[in-house]
Design a protein around this nucleic acid. Structure first.
Lengths: 226, 226
DNA sequence: TCCTTTATATGATTTAAATCATAGTGCGCC
DNA sequence: GGCGCACTATGATTTAAATCATATAAAGGA
């Protein structure tokens, strides 16, 4: 991949859209390309941060392990999205691990390089503030759900959130959905079987299609029967 | 409060420390002072954002309500800390309510004013990125805990987190601690009674003193008996 | 001062969800 | 093609924590 290719990737990402060609070229020069195969880890929670990353191709999941070893999925990132940036800005260990879900190419930009780039490009800093703000907002909503709502509602919200971000066809197993909603695989299967019976979703092995977003929303908001 | 007083407050806050006197004065000019009595709400979740705020004096809690009406406490803010900023940057409704815990003075700065100030002061933008990053990191850690750890561990972690931020004497009732850990008052009382019996904490009405941080850390990390 | 309110305490009961157990099913792989 | 593995499915049992129910004690207000 020549730098022109890198510049293309950078250009397509939200944080850098709107920059001029010379600035894109500057960023492309800073960027290092890395490739990962399905299942490979890009970094582990606790690693000291070297770079933050932009997804060029493929998908990445961010996850944390609880003390009992259970996996909790924080987010998925696709092309144009950045991850690992918090560690770089604070210069503290990565707060979560990141794993490639399929053949994935990413661009890494060194923290130091980027911080100096940032201080001369306030509009990029504002973009980052926007991204972080959005993620914080989402994390806090999920926190509230985890603290106060029951599993059914958390699952419904997880499905809704995913369909909002990815469209109605969700390429996840029940296991993964359970890990996102903070429940067990069995419970996720049981609940989603009921959703299937109610005509709210359809599913094939490893995939879930949301048929009735409205009903799902109802479920996510109130208890099933009041 | 004259603008010089406002400038003092602004100067003491992390995001603006390091600015020159002229910039501080500029900010002080933008700031509007508001006062609240104990229990008053500064804004409600869902309100459209007008300002973000800096605490000048007193304490503020940020909270969300679950669909069943249960209160969940997201954070406490003291002098020099900012809140409500995410709503302003994204120009979306406030994601949480904020309530004064005692006699409280805050400075409000209008979003528009501040965004233009920001774009000419990249170092302030970097500070905000730092603050948001820290909050995001914390929120994600809590998420993992809520999803995977049991109540005892969540409570232990909540106490640890508070003591890290506020010192060993925590001015909260069991009710408030329960609302932060996402459990019920009774469960918090039961668990904390055991902590008292184990010599880990001491408590008087409305206050909890942490005596043995090390034991608390052990509890927060592993199951009580393995 | 008494009376109300708020905080702490603890027992009994219920319930949601985890855990344990087992089995069928579609898929890739040797 | 058959073997094994990951995914889905469901039943039975256990358990953590919520809920319901009282009780005592300390603070605060009239």
């Amino acid at each position: 991949m020549r730098n022109t290719g890198k510049a293309e990737v950078v250009k397509q990402s939200f944080i850098f859209s709107g920059l001029g060609d010379d600035e894109l070229a500057e960023l492309a020069n800073l960027a290092i390309e890395r490739s990962f195969t399905s299942g490979e880890f890009i970094f582990w929670e606790g690693d000291s941060p070297d770079c933050f990353y932009i997804v060029a191709e493929g998908q990445v999941k961010a996850l944390k392990h609880s003390s009992s070893g259970k996996e909790f999925i924080i987010a998925f990132f696709g092309p144009g999205e950045i991850f690992g940036e918090v560690a770089v800005f604070e210069n503290k260990p990565y707060p979560a691990s990141s794993q490639a879900l399929n053949e994935t190419r990413v661009l890494g930009i060194k923290g130091k390089d980027f911080l100096s780039f940032l201080s001369s490009h306030p509009q990029v800093a504002l973009r980052i503030i926007n991204i972080l703000g959005g993620r914080l907002r989402e994390a806090q909503s999920r926190l509230r759900d985890f603290a106060g709502e029951r599993v059914e509602q958390r699952l419904a919200r997880t499905l809704l959130m995913l369909s909002l971000k990815l469209g109605p066809t969700l390429p996840f197993t029940r296991q993964e959905i359970a890990d996102m909603a903070g429940t067990t695989t069995e419970t996720a299967i049981r609940f989603m079987s009921r959703l299937r019976d109610g005509g709210i979703i359809r599913s094939v092995r490893g995939k879930t299609i949301i048929l009735d977003e409205t009903k799902l929303k109802l479920l996510s908001e109130g208890p099933p029967q009041v």
